[in-house]
Each structure stands twice: as C-alpha cells, then as structure tokens.
C-alpha cells in the first residue's frame, strides 16, 4: 500500500466516537453518544479494514512488456453493516476510481459480483465485511478459470457459451395448448432447486476441473440442463443428456463439492450433477 493511499484514508475517515478494544475488534456503538437513549436500537459500529486486491489492466503494459497483475492494499472505514461490495465502492469512490468490478442489484439476485474473497467464491454484495475477519487484510481476487479483463472483471463469454450449449430452454413438440400445460405440484417440485440459478459463475469458477480444463461444461451449465431435464413439460432430455455425455460433460466432475459450497443461492449443485449422471446411466429421468 502506498503512503498516499493511507493519507487519503486518514482524510476521508469519519470516526466519530469509534470504540475499538485491545484486539482491534470493534464493539460498542459508534456515534451513539450524540443520540438519545432510544438511539441504541440498531446502532452501527464503524471500523477500519484493509482490502488486499488483485489488480490488473492490460493498459499498464509499457515498452513492449505485457502488463502484470499485482496486489494493492487499501484501508477504508466501514460500517458494521457494510458488505464487501460497499468497501469496494468506498475505495473506488474515495480513493482510486480506476478500481474496476461489476455490480448491479447489490442484494444477491443479479449475479454480477461473484469474486474470490479470502480464497472463497462469494457475491461481494452478500458478504458483510465484519463476517470475514476484518482483523487481517481481506484478499479480493477475480474468480478463477476465466480470462481476467481488468481487476475483478473477467470475460464471461466462455461461461455463457457452455450455458447455451446445453439448450437451456423448454423443448416441446406438437400443438401448443390453448391454456397452460398441466403440471402437478410434485412434478414442479422435482426441479425447483435448479430454477434458482442466477448465472453468477461462482460454482463453475470454484471447480478445480474447470480451472485446469476450460473445455469442461462446468457446474452452472449442468445445473441449467438439470432444470429442463427434470421438468415434466420438456421433451429435450435425451438431446441434453447426449450433450453432457461428452468427454467434457458430467463425467469430468470429481464430486469435490466446491460448487455446492460456492453457490450463493444455496442450490445443491453436486446433487444436481449426480442426478444428471444417474439419468445418463439409467436413461430415465
């Protein structure tokens, strides 16, 4: 971390009445002294945290030498309620506008901000800073296995290419009914879990097989195939299963469960992959 960074932090910090105990952990209620008795309800402690961020920009290339990735540390003052995304925004807005990452909804439904936080794939908008041990620098890196474009932004195209290859849309034949297709509650429940996917790539980019073999479809594509294979209204299961029977298909999965742990929507990804494998073996859904 450069000295200018830390000066900027000092200048920007707004540490009213912050209380920090011996081990640096925040406690008490920052700023509370200014409010009346009832103000203690929902009070928010503030504290400093350092983020160690993997930076890369192709535009940093000099004299014919390609640009190299590097680590940079920033210290910011955050509220107890701040997410890692908020800390990244504070850095971008107060210290270094060139820090680049994707984000949109900021509450875990759009899937824009998957990144590696302390070595684990998470959505930056679903992780509170205080929950990732802010005593030590928090490392933030782009998700693995996809080409890095700039800082925390990766090229998502290979990910979406795999998604498209499993034909992620309802396949039917014959005449369309005038009303809705019937589906029982049990049939609907059969594929409920895999309808939750937000295509954030947290699962696929946590998969050790995908890291070393970019041709592997990856967990997210299989999850989206599962969503249709087990939908009673769909008639494309055989075609999709054949796609996933490829040498880069489901058989590459080594059942390490990284994907299930990474999924911010709580989808049981490994179980879904297993169900697709079983459907291939028994040729029945």
């Amino acid at each position: 971390m450069s000295s200018t960074d830390s000066e900027a932090v000092e200048a920007a910090a707004d540490r009213n009445d912050e209380q920090v105990d011996g081990d640096g952990r925040p406690h008490g209620r920052a700023g509370e002294s200014a409010s009346a008795d009832g103000g203690q309800l929902g009070a928010i402690p503030r504290f400093d945290v350092t983020l160690r961020i993997r930076r890369y920009s192709a535009e940093d290339a000099e004299d014919g030498k390609p640009a190299e990735a590097r680590w940079q540390e920033f210290t910011v003052t955050v509220n107890g309620t701040d997410r890692v995304l908020d800390a990244l925004h504070k850095i971008k807005w107060e210290q270094d506008g060139s820090l680049t990452f994707r984000r949109s909804c900021a509450h875990g439904v759009c899937g824009s901000d998957a990144m590696r936080i302390n070595g684990v794939n998470r959505l930056a908008c679903k992780v509170l800073v205080k929950d990732v041990n802010p005593d030590k620098p928090i490392t933030v890196e782009p998700i693995k296995g996809l080409p890095v474009e700039k800082d925390l932004v990766v090229d998502m195209e290979p990910f979406f290419q795999s998604y498209r290859e499993v034909m992620p849309f309802l396949i039917t034949s014959g005449h369309e009914p005038t009303r809705e297709r019937k589906q029982s509650q049990e049939e609907r429940a059969r594929f409920d879990d895999t309808t939750k996917c937000i295509l954030c790539a947290a699962c696929t980019s946590s998969c050790p097989v995908f890291w070393t073999d970019g041709q592997y479809f990856g967990p997210a594509a299989i999850v989206n195939a599962h969503r249709f294979i087990f939908d009673s209204r769909d008639e494309g299961a055989d075609v999709r299963l054949e796609v996933l029977n490829d040498r880069e298909g489901v058989w590459r999965c080594r059942t390490t469960f990284n994907c299930s742990e990474a999924c911010p929507r709580g989808i049981q990804v490994t179980k879904a992959i297993h169900e697709v494998k079983r459907a291939l073996l028994t040729r029945s859904v």
Binding site: F169, L170, E176, P177, E180, R181, Q183, S184, Q185, R188, F191, D192, T195, F228, D231, R233, D234
Partner: peptide
Amino acid sequence: EKMGLPFNRTP
C-alpha cells in the same frame, strides 16, 4: 408458461 416458466401449481 408456454415458454417454460415454472409457475407454482394448484392441486
């Protein structure tokens, strides 16, 4: 529904 949206269902 015809596009495949998984609406919740009645009995």
